[in-house]
């Protein structure tokens, strides 16, 4: 962890217009929950709203915007060279970016989840959902951070992963659920809250192990790829 890199990363993140995209998502999430709570009972809307919007849309999209924003945008515009020409171990660079990305995502997604969970079924569900979102934020950010070093189009691939893999396949083909961060978050939230309002599809040990595997795997990939980062030879 390097405070200077974290500081530049945070400044860069908040300075970009893309950052404004973060605000409508949690507001819509809370708004729909409030609306649902006023016309329906919790066991009717908990899964479609908390899971369907909060876990399946708000969390991954915020993580995608932030996770690719901390490193991918610097690679895109070439400013990463300024950071890489310093005698800082590459794992420290990745970890600093990871801390900033996870913290911002956890704050935005976890904060709105806490409010929405409370409105649905009291503070216990709010806290459980927020905690699960924080863990999910870490896993997603690691995934998208790695994606932004591996690919030149991290946002596109990230969107495809969220929409096709987690959104479509996981709901149709049950086997892919073990490889879906979304399902880990639902399981964690359900177990932490001890409620039947949420439907978990993955077993708790599997969810915990897979979350750790995804997080460490993403970090490892990002660090190794950054070690041999090449500047594309511009044919000028």
């Amino acid at each position: 962890m390097n405070s200077t890199i974290a500081w530049i990363t945070a400044r860069g993140l908040f300075g970009r217009r893309r950052f404004l995209l973060l605000f409508p998502l949690p507001l819509i999430f809370i708004g729909i929950t409030a609306l649902a709570a006023s016309i329906d009972t919790a066991d009717e809307f908990a899964t479609p709203v908390l899971v369907g919007i909060g876990v399946a849309v708000v969390l991954p999209l915020v993580a995608l915007i932030v996770g690719t924003g901390v490193l991918g945008s610097e690679i895109d515009d070439g400013t990463i060279v300024h950071i890489l020409t310093k005698p800082v171990p590459r794992w420290k660079i990745v970890l600093s970016k990871m801390v900033v990305a996870s913290a911002v995502t956890a704050f935005v997604a976890g904060g709105s989840a806490f409010v929405a969970g409370w409105m649905t079924d009291g503070p216990k569900l709010g806290l459980a959902l927020a905690a699960a979102m924080v863990i999910g934020a870490i896993a997603y950010c690691s995934l998208f951070l790695a994606l932004s070093v591996v690919s030149r189009r991290p946002v596109l691939i990230g969107l495809l992963y969220i929409a096709i893999w987690e959104g479509l396949l996981s709901n149709v083909v049950s086997g892919t659920r073990v490889l879906s961060v979304q399902q880990y978050v639902v399981t964690l939230a359900q177990k932490l809250a001890g409620t039947d309002l949420l439907m978990s599809t993955v077993k708790l040990p599997a969810a915990i192990i897979m979350t750790v595997v995804v997080t460490l795997g993403g970090l490892y990939l990002a660090i190794t790829r950054l070690r041999s980062f090449s500047v594309a030879g511009e044919t000028s």
Binding site: V81, P87, R227, E234, S236
Partner: peptide, 24 residues
Amino acid sequence: TWRNPEIYRHLGLVSEREAAHGFL
């Protein structure tokens, strides 16, 4: 120099691409 960040203690680079953190 490849895969060896320690060299940057003795090396400075000004690349052609005039990228810089514009918000600083």
